[in-house]
């Protein structure tokens, strides 16, 4: 495979406690956690969040391999952060150790953040996630924000990402077979060489989007007005507990200035 990672961020049903939480709980908690990780300035802070992540992954019964694999596409961002910070610190202080320490800190913080983000779609099916988002965005409808459309759009994107990866892999193979040089020359030449991959991909995305829109209409979808759910979102005690627990943890974390 030219694109090895076919299952990125795809829902893996294991029926764990984390899976059964209300999607709103997971979204809330995720927002809380981000707001704690971003201002975090200490190594202890990073270690605490790494431990929290490890706890959640263990509780979700999702194999680490899948989590790491799903985070792979954003690894370049992590590597870039590392290199950039290393360069910047080394330039400023000429101290290799300080630069190494700082860049490792920044990149590992980003990586933990990304892995938290990946846990959302891994433990929540796309439609559930859409329902949760829809509920959270509903207050914005008063300001004519298309909450429903926005939520279903995200759900569809999540559903079709792996298919598009497969499609991209096929296109790359087809063009390599015709002698395309996708891996040679400088960055501009390479970018140009990717047109034969990019254009079919864009056409396929549009065709697919069109097909899906028609198929959804055929099943009576018209913007989600009056839609009900097979499994309605029910806020349970465990959700209150989970959100309260996360909020308390985050508050303590912030108060301690970690």
């Amino acid at each position: 495979m030219y694109l090895t990672n076919m299952n990125l961020g795809q829902y893996i049903p294991t029926g764990s406690f984390i899976h059964r939480l209300d999607p709103r709980t997971k979204l809330f908690s995720f927002i809380l956690i981000i707001s704690a990780i971003f201002p975090s300035k200490t190594v202890v802070g990073v270690i605490i969040w790494a431990a929290a992540l490890a706890g959640i992954v263990a509780a979700s019964k999702i194999p680490w391999r899948a989590v790491l694999q799903s985070a792979k596409p954003v690894m370049f961002l992590v590597i870039f952060t590392f290199l950039f910070n290393f360069g910047a610190w080394y330039f400023r202080t000429s101290n290799v150790y300080a630069a190494l320490y700082e860049s490792l800190f920044m990149s590992s913080r980003l990586m933990i953040l990304m892995m938290f983000a990946v846990m959302l779609p891994l433990t929540t099916s796309p439609l559930e996630l859409a329902d949760g988002l829809n509920e959270l965005l509903r207050p914005l409808e008063r300001f004519r924000f298309p909450a429903n459309e926005c939520a279903i759009m995200i759900a569809m994107a999540l559903r079709f990402i792996p298919l598009l990866m497969q499609e991209t892999d096929k296109i790359i193979r087809a063009q390599l077979s015709r002698g395309a040089r996708l891996d040679q020359g400088n960055i501009f030449r390479r970018a140009k060489a990717f047109f034969p991959v990019l254009i079919p991909l864009i056409i396929i995305i549009f065709r697919r989007a069109d097909d899906i829109a028609v198929a959804m209409e055929a099943r009576g979808y018209d913007g989600g007005k009056g839609r009900t759910r097979r499994r309605p979102l029910i806020w349970r005690w465990r959700d209150t507990l989970a959100v309260a627990g996360t909020a308390a943890g985050v508050a303590l974390f912030l108060a301690l200035g970690l």
């Binding site: 795809q10 829902y11 049903p13 099916s125 796309p126 439609l127 759900a155 569809m156 999540l158 559903r159 298919l163 697919r208 097909d211 899906i212 198929a215 959804m216 099943r219």
Partner: peptide
Amino acid sequence: PENQIVAAM
């Protein structure tokens, strides 16, 4: 078939 299925389950 792929373009008619909207959910993951």
